[in-house]
Design a protein around this nucleic acid. Structure first.
Lengths: 123, 123
DNA sequence: CCCTGTCCTGGCCACCCGGCCAGTTTCGCA
DNA sequence: TGCGAAACTGGCCGGGTGGCCAGGACAGGG
């Protein structure tokens, strides 16, 4: 393989948080094969991070509910979720019920759609 | 759990080009202080690269399938979809079956998630 | 003309889902 | 120390879901 082809990946940064932007710039600056884009330069990919303060969209979901929600978004059935998390199907259904209630959804499909719309999960 | 002064930065990848995604994953995997997000995990930042040439990844869906898909994304049951479209529940299930097949999904929730990921529908 | 694709409908059936009831433990907070 | 929240488990059951079978109507292209 020839290394002279396109060894460098150009990355652009669109980070609201200055501290995060700085840390990322420092970390990525050491990586061979990576380069940060200059002003106006076209990049192969862009690192984006919205300011957390702009997204106060926190529906109060517990950690376990987030686990279940993530697996639901993967299309997993209650049985699969139970197996993956090492808990019983009943417990999964319990968490799903809480999710439906908190997300104001009528079913698991609706719950995933609502969560994605509100930015709780990333599809 | 060890509590370091500088916590890991969780990065998510949204790269259309598999080759680019792979190179980035390999490069970033070796960086101290960086970690790639798992499925559905909230990330501090997201690396985005949308390849316009790959976006026309039009899965050949018929108009009726798009109708059903849109209502599925609203969380509607087969019965509701049937009533809304003025067709029978059996026909809805037929279209849902085609959707599951074309979208390579295991269920209606997975189908909606896949469709949203591929940009077929907008949540 | 026939053949293909889309759309539509019906029945049957195993399984899954969501809601209801009940209980346990652990943990943090007032 | 009591009390609530979170996590977990069980049974039960009506209705929803998805896979399978079958069929018909209708338009467009070889």
């Amino acid at each position: 393989m020839s290394e002279d082809k396109a060894p460098e990946i150009v990355l652009a940064l669109e980070i609201d948080d200055p501290a995060l932007a700085d840390r990322l710039a420092v970390l990525l600056g050491h990586v061979d094969g990576l380069r940060l884009a200059g002003p106006g330069e076209a990049a192969a990919a862009t690192i984006v991070a919205r300011d957390p303060r702009i997204i106060p969209d926190d529906i109060a979901l517990t950690q376990r509910e987030l686990d279940v929600l993530a697996l639901m978004a993967e299309g997993a059935s209650n049985k699969m979720i139970a197996r993956r998390l090492g808990i019983s199907v009943h417990t999964v259904k319990f968490h799903v019920g809480s999710l439906l209630d908190k997300l104001d959804a009528t079913g698991r499909t609706d719950a995933v759609a609502h969560a994605a719309r509100r930015g709780v999960i990333e599809l």
